[in-house]
Design a protein around this nucleic acid. Structure first.
Lengths: 250, 250
DNA sequence: ACAAAAGTGTTCCATCTACACCCATGG
DNA sequence: CCATGGGTGTAGATGGAACACTTTTGT
């Protein structure tokens, strides 16, 4: 960052940055949620060429006076209709930057991709221009415009990995949740069933992961015994990690 | 990426991208190696303001016809004098993108940061303009220009984490190495001593991590019993992971 | 002979896995 | 009264930590 134009070899000495063919910088968002026991992603339908009519990840230009992270939050608020204060507090995970010169035939576009985790929400009531936004099950999110399938795959993999060693899973849950709901987040994102007793022990053994809600209020997901409610705790990393049951040795 | 200028809300309808205040896109490189049992980083001395005379990470502009990754490899070859084919094959890890609007007072610069791992090399014989490049112990790499200390910290943390569950450590080693040298990579990057017998077992138990070199040639790091030589194996991930001895419960 | 590093073996202990079992609720 | 999910208990397997011990070199 912040290199003198004449520093090193990227630009000839005395180079004027304004003469450079401009790079456009955009953000793309993989907004994920768990709805109806499925991992779902927020998609928008493109209204312009190229890929007019195709589904794509939401996103847009970074403005001259904002960081890429701020642009991602702004776009997220606009696409979902969530309040600014809600969007301001939720976790945005920068995935990586896609910069192949031929990604867009019309101009040079560099895009910073983010993943966002939301609890189950009503259908997006997009403010204004985002009425075309829709939750789509992750496995049906194809084909997508540009290389958005790749970005979505990267987002899924990153979130899956981060569930193992961070408290990120609570980001998919409402303010108060049962351990069964939390477990379903793991099962849905990873696509594997987990043993409820062991999951419970693991979560409660990790200090700061969840906190019991004081009052004895209980809630049920359908039928069965009512479950105790928990809140997200202050911890951000899991010690020890909660590993997905892959890599079993036969 | 690749958003239509009039798509969504990042730009007004009918917007012409060429009228946008241009973003410059650069790459910054945290080039790491293990020399003399220390983690060292390649630094260059800035020849221009701002931060003239300060040490900084190497880097430079992304050209209009290359991806950020290609720019990083080009800069790396120029700074180190390594051959193109060598640079083409080594592992470049994209860290993240830094895009705060005020990083550079002169213009808007978005930088994609990479980490690169090199085996111990002679002092950089920088081709041409990079004669001012120097290996510096990681703990002495301060102060640095701009937010390069932050980038270096991110690189160190990312590499430390990836050593746990990938075969990245062989990237710090020459083509043939002893298990003692491989262990020293871990100890140096993590800054903790490891138990040699347990380390040995762990590495050999991971299929594809290392391969024994056929001939019975042996080499010594100094004195002591000569050690068998190994090559990097075909695996890229470690199952199970080789965790650093942090997070012990007292 | 001694130091230093390679390499082998073994014991102890934390944790994970897998189930058996009881509890509370809705149909 | 039975299906369903919450919650507790426990025995066996697994794998890492710690450390004793032998081997092979340089000085």
């Amino acid at each position: 960052m912040t290199h003198q134009p004449s520093e090193h070899t990227g630009a000839p000495p005395g180079y004027d940055p304004r003469a450079f063919p401009p790079f456009a910088v955009t953000v793309d968002l993989a907004v994920l949620t768990v709805r109806a026991a499925r991992l779902q992603v927020l998609l928008v339908r493109r209204g312009e060429d190229p890929h007019r009519g195709a589904w794509a990840l939401p996103g847009g230009f970074v403005r001259p006076d904002e960081s890429a992270g701020a642009a991602a939050r702004r776009e997220l608020a606009e696409e979902t209709g969530l309040s600014d204060s809600t969007v301001r507090h939720l976790h945005l995970e920068q995935l990586r930057t896609y910069s192949e010169p031929d990604r867009d035939p019309r101009m040079r576009v560099v895009s910073v991709a983010y993943a966002a985790l939301l609890p189950d929400l009503p259908e997006p009531r997009g403010g204004g221009d985002a009425a075309h936004a829709r939750w789509t099950p992750r496995e049906h999110a194809a084909p997508l415009a540009f290389d958005h399938e790749r970005i979505l795959a990267d987002a899924h993999e990153r979130v899956s990995a981060k569930l193992e060693y961070t408290c990120l899973a609570t980001g998919f849950c409402p303010a108060e949740f049962t351990l069964g709901e939390l477990r379903q987040v793991y099962e849905t994102v990873w696509g594997v069933p987990l043993d409820p007793p062991n999951f419970r022990r693991k979560v409660l053994a990790t200090p700061g992961f969840v906190e019991a809600v004081e009052g004895p209020p209980r809630r049920t997901g359908g039928r069965g015994k009512p479950a105790a409610l928990y809140r997200a705790g202050p911890a951000s990393v899991l010690h020890p990690p909660l590993l997905r049951p892959e890599g079993r040795r036969p």
